[in-house]
Simulated assay, not measured.
Amino acid sequence: MAPAPSYRLLAELEAAFDRLIESTEALLAAYERSPAEAWAFQAEASTAWLRRALLDFWYTDGQDGRATRSHVGLVAADESLLEKVAEVNAAKADFATHLARIRDTHPPLLAEAKAVLPFRHPQLHDHLRGSGLARLHLKQCWRAIPTAEAPVARVRLAWYSSGRSIKRLTVREVEQKLLTLDTDAPHVRIQLRKLAGLPESEPLAQVQTQAPLMRANLFFCEPLEDGRTRRAMNVALPLFLPAPRARLPDHNLPPAAPPQSRTRARRSDEKLEETPYLPSLRVYRYR
C-alpha cells in the first residue's frame, strides 16, 4: 500500500534536511583542515564561530517570525572549500524546494516538520537545552551562503538601513488582501469602506521597511567576463572569497551598530503619502 502523500512529503523533507546537515558538517570539517584566513564581525574567527553561524537554524524565545539573525564574516577559500560551499547551497535549495511543495499542498505539515527535524540530529537538538532556543526557523535553514564569483582585491562592508520594499497593487488586489483579515473587526470594516471610495483604476503601494543589514562591496582583482569590476551583495552569513593563496583581501571594519537615523537622502521620485491609507496592510496612496 502506497504511503499517504503527506507522509511522503514529510519523508522527502526529512531526507533533504539530512543532506543539508551532512553537507554542512563536511564543509565545517574542510574548514577546520584549511589554513586559510578568516575574519568575523565582533567575534573571533574559528571553527566554533563558523559552526554557530552555519547551523543557526533556531528561533530564540520572542523572536519576530519575519526576522533572521546575521553572522557577518569573511573566509578565504581555496577551490576545494568552495566546492563544499556549493554543495551546501545546493542542499539548501533542495530543502527550500521541498518546503515550498509542502507549503503549497499540505501547509499543516510545516508545524510537524519544525518539531520533528531537530530530533533527527542529536547534536542539533542539544543546542535547544538551556539555550533559550525555541523551534526550527525554516528560513534560516535554507538561506544561501554568500560567495564571490572571482578573486577579490578588497571588500568594503557597510550598514544599509534605509531599505524599503515597495509593491505596486491594484484596488482589487488590496481588497482581496483585506478580505483575508477578520472582516468582523471594526478597524478592518473601516478600511474596506475607505478602499471602496477609491476609483478602481487608482494604483496603490504596499510598503515594507527592511531591517538594517550588512552589505559588502566587492572589488574584483580583474574584470569579469561581462566587464564588471565590482559587485554589491547583502551578507547575512559568512562570505566565502576565492583565495588561491589562502589570504583575505583588504577589508574594512564596519561600525558596531547601524546608524540611528537615515543616512541617505530620500529619492526625489518618492511619490507616496506620508501616512498609510490602510494601516493594517501598510498600503499607501501615491501623491
Rank of each mutant, 00 (worst) to 15 (best):
L157D: 01
A134E: 14
A144K: 09
A91T: 08
F119S: 14
A115N: 15
L74F: 06
L138G: 04
R154T: 11
T105C: 06
R66W: 11
A86T: 07
A100Y: 12
E112L: 10
A76G: 05
V88W: 08
E149W: 07
W142L: 09
L117K: 08
H137T: 00
V85W: 01
V75K: 03
L124D: 09
N89Y: 01
K84A: 11
V152E: 08
W159S: 12
S162P: 03
R154F: 03
K92E: 00
V85T: 11
V85K: 01
I102T: 10
A86W: 13
N89K: 01
G130F: 04
S80C: 08
K84I: 01
A134H: 08
D78K: 09
T147N: 02
R69P: 00
R66A: 11
S131G: 15
L110N: 03
P118I: 09
T97G: 12
E83V: 04
D94Q: 00
T147V: 15
P146M: 04
A96N: 15
E149H: 05
R120T: 14
H125Q: 11
A90C: 03
A100V: 06
A67K: 04
A90V: 00
W159H: 12
H106I: 13
G130H: 07
V155D: 06
L124F: 10
A90D: 04
P118S: 14
D94W: 00
R66L: 09
K84R: 15
K92I: 00
L82I: 07
S161F: 10
H137G: 01
G73M: 05
A134C: 03
T147H: 11
I102Y: 14
P151H: 02
R66G: 02
V88I: 11
E87W: 08
W159E: 09
S80T: 13
H125L: 10
A148P: 07
D64C: 06
